[in-house]
Design a protein around this nucleic acid. Sequence first.
DNA 1: CCTTGAATGTTAGTCGCTAACATTTGTGAT
DNA 2: ATCACAAATGTTAGCGACTAACATTCAAGG
Lengths: 185, 185
Amino acid sequence: MEHPTKRERTTAALVHAALDLFERGGYEQTTVGEIARAAGVTEMTFFRHFPTKEAVLLDDPYDPELIAAVGARPASEPPFLRAARGVRGAWRSLPEPETPVIRRRIRIIALTPSLRGAMWRSTGNTERALVEQLVADGAAPAVARVAAASVLAALVSGLYAWAEAPDGSLAEAIELALDVIDVRP
Amino acid sequence: MEHPTKRERTTAALVHAALDLFERGGYEQTTVGEIARAAGVTEMTFFRHFPTKEAVLLDDPYDPELIAAVGARPASEPPFLRAARGVRGAWRSLPEPETPVIRRRIRIIALTPSLRGAMWRSTGNTERALVEQLVADGAAPAVARVAAASVLAALVSGLYAWAEAPDGSLAEAIELALDVIDVRP
DNA sequence: CCTTGAATGTTAGTCGCTAACATTTGTGAT
DNA sequence: ATCACAAATGTTAGCGACTAACATTCAAGG
């Protein structure tokens, strides 16, 4: 990261410009062309960095880490706890400096109906991956599905709550949400 | 309904054409223009009947009836049971002849990711209306939200399951799904 | 320095969707 | 029946998200 490649720099510029414009004028009202221009680039280039307009907000690289964190927990744990604690751990180890950006993204998502739908779809992918991981380690599919669905639902609801009124750190908010689900031993 | 007005007739023609084309060639691949042409009408006219392309599948008129059915149950029942049983009753009283069309719609939705997202959004509206109804009759907002969300989640999951493998009538499938939630007295 | 591949620009086009205005068509009162 | 009014549809023009094909500039490595 010492020498960010040019591609990384433009991607960052696009994200920055997009967040600014979305917050200022709303998601729907902001044009991809406007974002690109604000980042000193062409509309075409935007789509070379993000497959869709939504992706600039939803494309988060945390998914694989999340799956890995769940996989790292002992397979002897019941799937439900395994998922809940894996997710908890993954978010706890998030570098603090990134949280403000995450918060801006989630706030925009929270107050844009069409983005909430997209968020749901995106979560669906994570859910599938999570189920796959749990089943690969021996969980019954039906159990894995319920576990993944409810843990992710709690996670998302925690994210929304935190974005609206951040009473503490992101990690704390996530843990709070997961506490509702996790039954401590 | 003896004398369907012209508007109703074209709406029906559009729905019919849309279902056919979607099943034949997939939702994303089918153009609004194609649907309109197949219904003997212009693309513009399509949008005079449906606000969006999705709406031809999601625009179902059952929502108000569903809310009414819940409202009709004794307000003395706990919100959760009230919602579950209201929903159950609303679907039970569905005219049988309509179910084949419903099934076609839901199958298409089930296997089109973007439509699943849209379905989620649409359900969100129903959820809000349901919460409103429950709260208006004295339920605590937090309780009402949980009740509405879980009952509707069960409903949707029942719909998907039935659309994929209809082992029985729609009403039976719905009741089966709601049984998972409803605690019989 | 110079070459090669990555990153970007240009142009043109499709599809979902909207607006403004003109035209037809159905329907209700006479 | 008919005639007038309103509902339903057509036409044209255009915006915004997104894609494809091809040309151009830029940036690291030898």
